[in-house]
Write a protein that binds this DNA or RNA. Structure first.
Length: 486
RNA sequence: GGCCCUAUCGUCUAACGGUUAGGACGCCGCCCUCUCACGGCGGUAAUAGGGGUUCGAAUCCCCUUAGGGUCACCA
């Protein structure tokens, strides 16, 4: 039997990391088994649907490198792939349950139910539907209908039944149906609830494996009940561990580190890095290699190796992986990404810079980047503006005994050196060294401090060569003035 | 509160009854080096607690504790 999985998000907002991880695991599983993946948009909550969310979702998944064989964007043999376009399927299913007396109309008002729930909670009881409408006589039902009382359909949960399934991640799980309460199948607006919709659709679309987040664990027994009632075979369930924040709480959309997937694209992360990181959240490849391409992940993916406990989203590790992938990219590609960042921030290379300037500047900082946007933070104050602010550490260097003399000597040579390259700067330092007898730290650090305002940074010769001569001379002068050594 | 799930270094994880409990990130040290970063080498650090079962338990069972999820006309 061909493996068929689905990723079934609701179009209520942007795709976040947790959702992306679920999509990725479905994708990896399908590809590993040579199966198919379906994208299904679960838009049955009319109120919460956000226009444009579906399009952005698809864009985010594509950016990550994921694809599917069937979906609202490309169609397929089991369509349509938006739930609101599948109402006929749910109506048929409801009719079949009605015929067998497995459902009943409920006329309780939302206020009534809310009041009961609050009361139950307050008195330490389990908040669960009382089943009041379950035992309404045919005459009472008819009277309500005649009066036009709004109603919904509930599933009559059988008593003394234990629902058990073999979860591909967690092993055997079982729940007593008595703990469930008669849950809603069709809302008063005629739209099915999630639990009903998902079963009808997964069955209709021949989904063989349902791989989803742990928060759905408690929905599973209800769905199992529906598969039985509808006389359909249940798929294999696999519940992925939750993705947690550093406080070990479920990743919330308000968490500072949790950004929509496309925010990572906007910052110039490589999607391969994000995918690699996400794959390691709750799953391990087994061997000791953990830097793996999408193809390698597909080859190795196995539900049996999915961990059971929640996984904390570790920003440090993401950034490390992101840096590794970024360093593997060709320089021209990275330069293009950085160039995009610059224009988005309204920044430009220094005046008089040649066409190769940005590539040289990016080469200087590439070792430190986790994403293209980092370039601005790292290089911005040194390379993109004429003036520099001297940090305390830099001023301390400039106040050392021989420092001012070195800076003055270097400035004199830089002022009329016809050659403005890294190699030329290197020659100037050699000249200063011979003239003053200063070498090593005492030679380079004062100039570094004066030119960049910092005691640390990438290669000094290249940095100077990337700056206009006028900026360098002015900074050297200003640095001397700053420490009273003019 | 009921039900369900979970528990190995700070974090991601390996181990599927027998290992000096392994790797990665982070952190620390050393090397490289004008400094930083990259890279290389080394180090720090864990089986939540208590009972069983067993020749032998991180691994199997029970209890405790602690986290999380869920109990919607949301998905």
């Amino acid at each position: 039997m061909t493996v068929r999985v689905r990723f079934a998000p609701s179009p209520t907002g942007r795709l976040h990391l947790g959702g992306a991880r679920t999509a990725l695991f479905n994708y990896l599983f399908a590809r590993h088994h040579g199966g198919q993946m379906v994208l299904r948009i679960e838009d049955t909550d009319l109120e919460r649907n956000v226009p444009g969310a579906e399009q952005e979702l698809i864009e985010a998944l594509h950016w990550l490198g994921l694809s599917w064989q069937e979906g609202p964007d490309i169609g397929g043999p089991y369509g349509p792939y938006r739930c609101t376009e599948r109402l006929a399927w749910y109506q048929d299913a409801l009719r079949s349950l009605q015929d067998r007396g497995l459902v009943y109309p409920c006329f309780c008002t939302p206020d009534q139910l809310a009041a009961e729930r609050t009361q139950a909670l307050a008195s330490g009881q389990v908040p669960r539907y009382s089943g009041r409408c379950r035992h309404l006589s045919a005459a009472e039902q008819a009277a309500h209908m005649e009066r036009g009382t709004p109603f919904l359909w509930r599933f009559a949960v059988p008593e003394d039944v234990v629902l058990t399934w073999d979860d591909a991640v967690r092993g055997t799980v079982s729940v007593r149906a008595d703990d469930l309460g008669d849950f809603v199948l069709v809302k008063s607006n005629g739209i099915p609830t999630y639990n009903f919709q998902v079963v009808v659709d997964d069955a209709a679309m021949n989904i063989t494996h349902v791989i989803r987040g742990e928060e759905h664990l408690s929905n599973t027994p209800r769905q199992l009940l529906l598969y039985q009632a509808l006389d359909k075979p249940a798929p294999v369930f696999a519940h992925l561990p939750q993705v947690l924040n550093s406080e070990r709480k479920k990743l919330s959309k308000r968490d500072p580190h949790v950004e929509p997937v496309l925010a990572y694209r906007e910052k110039g992360y490589t999607p391969e890095a994000l995918v690699n990181f996400l794959a390691l959240l709750g799953w391990s490849p087994g061997g000791e290699q953990e830097l793996l391409s999408l193809d390698e992940l597909c080859a190795r993916f196995d539900l049996a190796r999915v961990h059971r406990s929640g996984a904390v989203f570790d920003v440090d590790k993401l950034n490390w992986i992101a840096g590794v992938y970024l360093r593997q990219q060709p320089l021209p590609w990275l330069t293009g990404q950085v160039s995009q960042q610059l224009s988005e921030h309204g920044l430009q290379p220094p005046p008089g810079s040649g066409p190769d300037w940005l590539e040289r500047a990016v080469a200087l900082y590439r070792d430190e980047l986790t994403c293209a946007a980092d370039f601005i933070e790292l290089a911005g104050s040194v390379l993109l503006q004429p003036e520099v602010v001297w940090q305390a550490e830099a001023l301390a260097v400039l106040r050392q005994p021989e420092a001012a003399a070195v800076v003055r000597a270097y400035r004199a040579l830089a002022a009329d050196d016809p050659d403005w390259t890294a190699e030329a700067s290197r020659r100037r330092f050699r000249a200063v060294q011979q003239a003053l007898g200063v070498k090593g730290k005492a030679l380079y650090l004062p100039v570094r401090a004066a030119v960049t305002g910092r005691a640390h940074g990438p290669d000094l010769q290249e940095t100077i060569a990337c700056l206009p001569r006028a900026w360098v001379l002015a900074r050297l002068d200003n640095a001397l003035a700053e420490v009273g050594q003019v």
